[in-house]
Simulated scan of single mutants.
Amino acid sequence: MHLSRGQKLSIRDLIPNGSVSITIDYYPTDIDIAAFSLDKDHKIKDDRYTILFSNRQSPDNSIALTLHEGKAIFTIDIDRLPTTIDRIIFTATHDIHAIGKARKLEVTVGQQAGTYNAKEDLTTEKAVMMIALYRHQNAWRIGTIGQGFNGGLAALITHFGGEIAAPPPPSSSPSPTSNPVPPRLNLNKITLEAKQSISLTKTAPTFGEIKINLNWSRGSSARRGFFGKISSNKAVDLDLGCLYVLKNGEKSVVQALGKSFGHFDRKPYIKLLGDDRTGDVNTGETILINGKFFDEIEKIAIFAYIYDGVPNWNETNGVVTLTVPEQPPLEVRMTQGNNNKTMCGIAVIDNHNGQMKVSRLVEYFRDHEEFAKSVNIFLRWVSARKN
Score class of each variant (00 low, 15 high):
Q147P: 05
Q147G: 11
G148C: 07
G148F: 05
F149G: 09
F149Y: 14
F149Q: 08
N150V: 06
G152Q: 11
A154L: 14
A155T: 13
A155F: 08
I157N: 04
T158L: 14
G161H: 05
G161K: 08
G161C: 10
G162Q: 03
G162I: 01
G162T: 09
E163R: 15
E163L: 12
E163I: 10
E163Y: 10
A166K: 15
A166I: 13
P167M: 03
P168Q: 06
P169M: 03
S171M: 09
S173Q: 10
P174L: 06
P174Q: 08
P174V: 09
S175E: 13
T177F: 10
T177E: 11
S178E: 12
S178I: 12
N179M: 13
P182I: 04
P182A: 05
P183V: 07
P183E: 09
R184P: 01
N186F: 04
L187C: 00
L187Y: 01
L187W: 03
I190C: 03
T191D: 01
L192C: 01
L192K: 03
E193R: 06
A194D: 08
S197Q: 00
I198A: 09
S199D: 13
K202C: 01
T203H: 09
T206H: 05
K211W: 12
N215A: 14
N215G: 15
